[in-house]
Design a protein around this nucleic acid. Structure first.
Lengths: 343, 343
DNA sequence: CTGTTAGCGCTTTCAG
DNA sequence: CTGAAAGCGCTAACAG
């Protein structure tokens, strides 16, 4: 069934039973030590620990997961590794999970789709204790079935709307407002916004519009997207128009970089002729040659809280759905300045 | 032990036994269907499949892994999610694995380190069937113990040198040669190279030097790094010198972008005053506003082959160590042109 | 082709 | 505090 008896040395990995034998105790005692029980004398505990070390013992999580109610793993569904906006989120999440002795199992929805793998299904077969969805994914149907089986938390996205799934995101409306207010404070009046997709796109737009109206300015929204390409196209059209904007607030950093390219194409300097603000404060924004003013969405904090929620739900089903907003922060860099006329 | 009896509806997930009962067959027959055995009449198979669908049955991979010699998972150790050069590699790898019914389990070494998680150790406890190391990692010690237990393949890196671990990489020497030859063909003679770390750094340097010597030019190598920052610093010093180069071949795209910023700082235009070549052909190189000429390292092919190797080793231990080189391809974009004097 | 029987390595009662 | 015993869901012999 398992490893054939092997001629030379036994390739069989040491089990709890080997450890028990070596330490001169029973199987269950070893199990107790493993579980960190306090009902073990320190001598015995030492003996067990020593035996483990000598044998190079490694607990088999498969076996553990099979017999205990928790597998000790949490699935993390990443939407697209190409855009590493989620890295800090993942760090926050990992920190929370690690402290609880839980391992994140990462899967990349985009790649899996391409090769025809059913990411969520695979995770469920692995008996994950919960699922954290990082960023908007297209696996809506799969998530609906998943939530029937395991707790689900959405991090850095508000979609799909799953009854019973907690949501942890940055405060997009407030973040967008900060961005717009920054531009307004610099003296800009013709400030355009490249709207992005989905609920998040709507919220950022709303924050932008509110800030504009508060200052008696007319909102100027055009459809953008979340890619460099879409930002480029949208900005190109804007800048080719008769009364071009003096500032553009893009949906995210990628679209903002697209706008930057469009500006360069028209011979406009940034921020001399045109100011630009992105969103997400990715490492792209930090690249010297781009140096984008951007809204930081506090992703580390988002990850931390998502971890807390999923661990709570692991213990207690039937919690009400929760929404946690993390404050944003505007990071000013080289892509914003006063409008040209005000010079 | 497992799920408490639950008051309302039974939360217990259907097992192979439930399926057998419902389909009116034995447990083992269900197992055979699951395993895709041909020794099952099509009627019975249908019955089993139907029962599974009706029950919403999902095989428990933990249980499967516990009783069969393979767990059906392969660990994938990612070095740093921040630099998404490996995305296509992962796609190739996933394609191979998926075709074999094996699931990749992704872990991020960098994040894990930060939170104090022992990535490799965790994977081994999960009873992975093999480990693919993607990119250079700092977990050398852990890898050495890992290779005693499971097959290891290095993809996109040559380090650490592990006896018995296959290596799949692009042909760095040849790639660097292509980059240098491209610049030479454009008429450049003062071509500097920003050397990167490790074995790969040495190989790229060697390819560059060979191309230079073949054309009777003097190699000009300075220490760089693999980050934007290090590329910036190195290039800044180079460009401040008396006889500055007319072209720079950087270790990778990130360093190349650093060089781009340094050029901008000095008021040099690219490619008018200075030509730049990167390496990895990441999506950064493709960004319009950067538009870097770069060497594509064929990472999809690297991933495919790494998958093949690991699957082979899963079946057959004691294979000799292998090295597979994937051909590179220069992608010319806007950062290279003729040297200024030749205009 | 089918049903029975052992385990895989571990946790968890339940008596000592 | 400790040991024996049962069982998690599944696979893999083994006789029918």
């Amino acid at each position: 069934m398992n490893q054939p008896p092997a001629p030379g040395h036994p390739p069989r990995r040491p089990t709890i039973r080997d450890v028990a034998e070596r330490a001169g105790v029973s199987k269950s005692l070893v199990s107790l030590v493993l579980g960190g029980s306090s009902n073990v004398s320190s001598d015995r505990r030492r003996a067990v620990l020593d035996a483990m070390a000598e044998l190079g013992y490694r607990p088999n999580q498969l076996a553990r997961g099979l017999s205990s109610p928790h597998s000790g793993t949490i699935g993390v569904l990443l939407n697209d590794l190409r855009n590493p906006w989620f890295v800090e989120l993942l760090e926050g999440l990992s920190a929370t999970l690690h402290a609880a002795g839980v391992s994140p199992v990462l899967v990349d929805s985009y790649t899996d789709n391409r090769v025809g793998r059913r990411s969520v299904e695979t995770l469920l077969e692995q008996r994950i204790d919960g699922l954290v969805v990082v960023g908007t994914t297209s696996e809506e149907a799969a998530l609906e079935t998943a939530i029937a089986t395991v707790p689900v938390v959405l991090a850095g996205t508000r979609e799909p709307a799953l009854p019973g799934a907690d949501i942890v995101v940055d405060d997009d409306e407030s973040g967008a407002r900060q961005a717009a207010e920054h531009l307004i404070a610099l003296g800009h009046r013709r400030i355009a916004h490249l709207q992005g997709p989905g609920e998040i796109g709507r919220l950022r737009r709303a924050g932008y519009e509110a800030a504009m109206r508060d200052s008696g300015l007319d909102p100027w929204v055009v459809a953008g997207g979340m890619s460099e390409e879409s930002g480029y196209e949208a900005a190109r059209r804007l800048l080719a128009g008769p009364q071009r904007p003096t500032a553009i607030f893009a949906f995210n950093d990628l679209a903002c970089i697209g706008a930057l390219s469009a500006a360069a194409d028209q011979g406009l300097t940034v921020p001399g002729d045109l100011s630009l603000v992105g969103y997400d404060n990715t490492y792209l924004a930090r690249i010297r040659h781009l140096s984008l003013t951007s809204v930081d969405n506090g992703n580390f904090a988002v990850g931390l809280q998502a971890g807390r929620y999923i661990l709570e739900r692991r213990e207690t089903r039937d919690l009400p759905q929760r929404l946690h907003l993390v404050p944003t922060q505007l990071v000013v860099r080289g892509s914003t300045g006063h409008p040209p006329d005000s010079a």
